[in-house]
């Protein structure tokens, strides 16, 4: 695994807590994410991992705690003190969000080319030929044939939709990508291909990634570090190999052994 690229963290999370009424979504989560690092958040459904991901990506305001992000100018900013305009700019340039269901992250009624080109147009690109060439290049990088560029994603298979969603997110060279079960709902063979592609892109682009998954095999293949969550709390954190090969917490042991038995 490649060494982290910087001394300074990209994302600093301190005591993030989110309640739903009087029920805990996630509680007191703190960690740093470094440039080029892939962090997997694992746990069963209901463990709070998706709540945490939504808090991190400003899609759900935490009840308490602070999340700071290093902007492109190097300054750390509290995400929940950004203006709506700054937040939107961040989300369409410096960040990506890959949904489990590709339809949530794509415009299903516009062409693949426009799906990839949208972010470029949103930040002011006004040359049709350049937009199209960039979109074509990105479709190639996610292994979608050039002649599909004018088709809309409704005609795409599940795996293709997911790859298109990834291209749509990466076209502006983001530094941080959030992924919510990106391989969920896909056939095993399709999953393998997608994971392989993701691993390559993440390494090539030096992306920082926070990925939520219940599938420890995905975590092992993609991530440098793992956070195990249960009942809204982080119960174990460590390097991926270490947590998966030698889990300390009984719950982590159970989680790992259940996977290994399958």
């Amino acid at each position: 695994m490649k060494a982290f690229q910087s001394e300074d963290p990209l994302l600093q999370v301190r005591n993030v807590t989110r309640y739903y009424g009087d029920r805990i979504g996630c509680a007191n989560v703190s960690f740093d994410l470094w440039p080029g690092e892939v962090l997997a958040i694992v746990g069963e459904s209901g463990s709070g991992k998706t709540t945490l991901l939504n808090c991190l990506s400003t899609r759900l305001a935490p009840t308490a705690g602070a999340i700071e992000y290093r902007m492109r100018d190097g300054a750390m900013r509290n995400l929940y003190q950004l203006s709506e305009a700054e937040r939107r700019l961040l989300m369409r340039t410096d960040w990506g969000f890959v949904h489990q269901n590709a339809a949530d992250g794509l415009r299903m009624n516009v062409s693949a080319g426009a799906n990839v080109g949208e972010r470029l147009m949103a930040v002011g690109e006004r040359h049709y030929g350049n937009i199209r060439a960039t979109a074509d290049d990105w479709l190639g990088r996610v292994e979608i044939e050039s002649d599909r560029i004018d088709d809309d994603p409704r005609s795409f298979s599940g795996g293709m939709r997911q790859r298109l969603q990834i291209a749509r997110n990466l076209v502006t060279q983001p530094r941080l990508v959030f992924m919510d079960e990106p391989t969920g709902g896909l056939d095993v063979s399709v999953q393998a291909r997608l994971l392989d592609l993701l691993r390559r892109l993440v390494a090539d682009l030096g992306l920082s990634v926070v990925i939520v998954t219940h599938d420890l095999a995905v975590a092992r293949l993609l991530s440098h570090r793992i956070m195990v969550m249960r009942h809204g709390n982080v119960i174990e954190t460590g390097l991926t190999d270490q947590v998966l090969d030698d889990p300390r917490e009984p719950y982590s042991q159970l989680l790992v052994s259940s996977i290994l038995q399958v």
């Binding site: 080319g113 949208e118 972010r119 147009m121 937009i131």
Partner: peptide
């Protein structure tokens, strides 16, 4: 209204892009 306030007009060009592509 939010899109106007934030000058978030990318979608407008998506439509024009689709016109040309089609």
């Amino acid at each position: 209204r939010k899109m106007h306030a934030l000058e978030d007009y990318g979608l407008m060009h998506v439509k024009l892009y689709e016109d040309i592509a089609k």
